[in-house]
Design a binder for these strands. Structure first.
Lengths: 203, 203
DNA sequence: GTCTATATGCGGATAGAC
DNA sequence: GTCTATCCGCATATAGAC
């Protein structure tokens, strides 16, 4: 009768919980940024207690670093997979893959938040390094030239910004926003709007 | 003998102080973002007491809103001035003017921070609106087409990101960073490096 | 117009039980 | 492996003096 579990999910291997928390953290950091996110929000999102989150990663800072490291690894892995499918039309195929990554809640936005904290001695350093890893990939593995690589990054940064801004919320209300989104996301708009919908329900 | 001023700067008209604080706030918000910046840091930067900052603007949130509003107004004013000097070669001339704005410490970065907080009901709403104001300017006043406007924004967002990342710190240490900066900032690199220098000393 | 003192709340982190 | 209870510090905001 007594002694039942006081939490629904019960125990689980450390590695699994870890992954679960990292995913939740990615979402929360993506929405509020490094400073804005709280370990408690992350814990709630993962369905665990706040001290447990801290316990598992040591500090909020280390957790954030792990989040952006994981995000970076995911991006590179994805791009390498695209590359393995052929070297034709890479700009477009990378672009599509990049947009698809929006499905991973907060992944691109967590990175974006880290990018604007370049002044931080630890976060900033890792962010620069990560950005350069992507650039190195484009230049050396994908075979892009400097201008081509730059162009790709430009598009990526605008996309990140539009997502961060939640510009899709104005899709119906502002003709300008509509035009901007249609120009920036040729043929991938449906995904963005779908995600925007999910966002509205979830928040 | 007694009754000397207990603060060096003494009194000053409200409007002047206001401007002074807004400038300091722009710098601090640019570095740490909305959540990361504290009203105390801002107060210190402006040489006033923390409660005074809050007193003058009501809340930190209102202060931030004023900062991004002021930044936006500055951008549009600058672009309009460029436009008034002729309609030829606008992309480049806007681009140069944009890079010059980096001189206004934190101006572009404060905006960038606001752009990734689109989920916030008040900050996000204003950020979207501001971004669209710039887009509207490009489309209607400057006469850009959708693609041209988009291209310009892409370049701007990459620039913001590179500045946020403080990529110039790797200028000498990383050949890749060097190449990236040289490609992204043709002929304006000197300014970036000069600002990077100032940054290192000031922080 | 600007400060000092301070109330209050929240967030990260620690201790320790189970 | 995970929780509860709790400490401590910091940040925003208020009260009120000068």
């Amino acid at each position: 009768m007594h002694h039942e579990f006081h939490h629904p999910v019960s125990r689980m291997k450390s590695e699994d919980r870890r992954e679960l928390i990292l995913e939740s953290a990615t979402g929360v950091f993506g929405q509020f940024g490094y400073y804005g996110a709280t370990t408690d929000q992350i814990a709630k999102a993962a369905g665990v207690s706040q001290p447990y989150v801290v316990r598992m990663f040591g500090t909020k800072e280390r957790l954030f670093i792990e989040v952006i490291e994981r995000a970076l690894a995911f991006i590179l892995m994805t791009f390498r997979a695209v590359l393995a499918e052929g070297h034709h039309d890479l700009q477009h195929r990378f672009g599509s893959a990049y947009v698809e990554m929006l499905r991973q809640r907060g992944l691109l936005l967590s990175l974006m938040h880290s990018f604007v904290l370049g002044g931080d001695p630890v976060v900033g350093a890792r962010a620069r390094e990560g950005f350069l890893e992507v650039y190195a990939f484009l230049r050396h593995e994908a075979g892009f030239g400097p201008e081509e690589a730059q162009q790709f990054l430009e598009g990526g940064m605008l996309l990140n910004t539009l997502v961060g801004l939640r510009m899709s919320e104005e899709f119906e209300t502002s003709p300008l926003a509509n035009e901007l989104l249609c120009t920036a996301l040729p043929h991938k708009l449906d995904l963005l709007l779908e995600l925007g919908e999910a966002q509205r329900l979830g928040t």
